[in-house]
Simulated assay, not measured.
Amino acid sequence: MLPTQTAADTAISAPAGEPALPLELLELELSLDGFSGEEAGFADAVRMAADRVGGDFLFELPASGLADDCRRIAALRVPQGEDGALTVVFALLDTEGSAIRVENPDETTKDLKRFADAFVDVLQRI
């Protein structure tokens, strides 16, 4: 008998050069597919998508070179894994302002992730 995989263990293949997203993040990314393409609506679209998956919108700011092909970046906490623990991910508005992609923190965004974690710590103490 073959071992079974849980949704938390399954990753979706991404195009070459992009990291695979766990199933939990796929729903978030799919809910962002309907983005209207207006930069002014980026934060609202990401906030609504985070709510749909039971996550939290933390903040958004100009990307300022924090990620490739990106105009704005938003930090979210979304449930991941079997226990649904909240973890920081980023929603990135592309340079054309027409599409949003979701990424896990990586080497280039590690400082922003640390900032997001500190932001959450401050909010929890209030």
Rank of each mutant, 00 (worst) to 15 (best):
M1S: 14
Q5K: 13
A8P: 02
D9M: 10
T10I: 15
T10N: 11
A11M: 08
I12V: 14
P15R: 11
P15G: 05
A16Y: 11
G17W: 07
P19Q: 14
A20T: 07
A20C: 07
E24S: 13
L25C: 14
L25V: 08
E27C: 08
L30S: 15
L30A: 15
L30H: 15
S31D: 15
S31I: 01
L32T: 05
G34S: 13
G37Y: 07
E38Q: 11
A40E: 13
A40Y: 07
F42D: 01
F42N: 00
V46Y: 03
D51P: 00
V53F: 05
G55C: 10
F57E: 01
F59I: 00
E60D: 15
E60H: 14
L61D: 04
P62A: 10
S64L: 13
S64K: 13
G65Q: 06
G65R: 06
G65M: 06
L66F: 02
D68H: 12
D68A: 15
C70Q: 00
L76V: 04
V78M: 09
P79D: 04
Q80D: 02
Q80M: 13
Q80A: 08
G81L: 04
G81V: 04
G84I: 03
A85R: 12
A85M: 08
T87R: 15
V88M: 05
F90T: 03
L92M: 15
S98G: 02
S98L: 11
S98Q: 10
I100W: 02
I100K: 01
V102P: 03
V102C: 06
N104C: 07
P105V: 06
E107S: 14
T109D: 05
T109A: 06
K110M: 12
L112T: 02
F115K: 07
A116I: 00
F119A: 01
V120A: 06
L123S: 13
L123Q: 14
Q124V: 05
